[in-house]
C-alpha cells in the first residue's frame, strides 16, 4: 500500500510518502499507526498522540478502526485548516 504524510506529520517523519506491504498482524488503521510509531525516532514523535492525527483511506476520511488492505492509499495528517 501507499502511505502519505502531510503538514507536521511529513516534517516529523521526514517523509512525504512511502510504499509498504501491510505488516504481519496489522489489519486496521489503528494497527498501522502503532506499527509506524514503533519505528521510533521521528515516527514515534509523529504518532505519539494519536488523537492529533487524522486519517484518510483512498481519499475518504475514516476512523482508526477502518480495515486496511494492500491496495489502499492511506494518508496521515493533522485536522484540516483550509478556507
Amino acid at each position: 500500500m501507499k502511505i502519505l504524510y502531510f503538514a507536521w506529520l511529513k516534517e516529523k517523519t521526514s517523509l512525504a510518502e512511502e510504499d509498504l506491504s501491510l505488516p504481519c498482524g496489522v489489519s486496521t488503521v489503528a494497527g498501522l499507526m502503532e506499527y509506524l510509531k514503533n519505528r521510533g525516532g521521528g515516527f514515534a514523535d509523529a504518532f505519539a498522540d494519536s488523537t492529533l492525527v487524522r486519517v484518510a483511506v483512498n481519499m475518504e476520511h475514516v476512523q482508526t478502526s477502518h480495515p486496511l488492505n494492500n491496495a489502499d492509499e492511506v494518508a496521515f495528517f493533522p485536522p484540516v485548516t483550509g478556507g
Binding site: 502531510f6 503538514a7 484518510a56 476520511h61 494518508a75 495528517f77 493533522p78 485536522p79 484540516v80 485548516t81 483550509g82 478556507g83
Partner: peptide
C-alpha cells in the same frame, strides 16, 4: 470545506 477539504496552513 473548513472541516473536510485537506488543506493545511503554516
Amino acid at each position: 470545506l473548513k472541516t473536510e477539504a485537506p488543506f493545511w496552513k503554516k
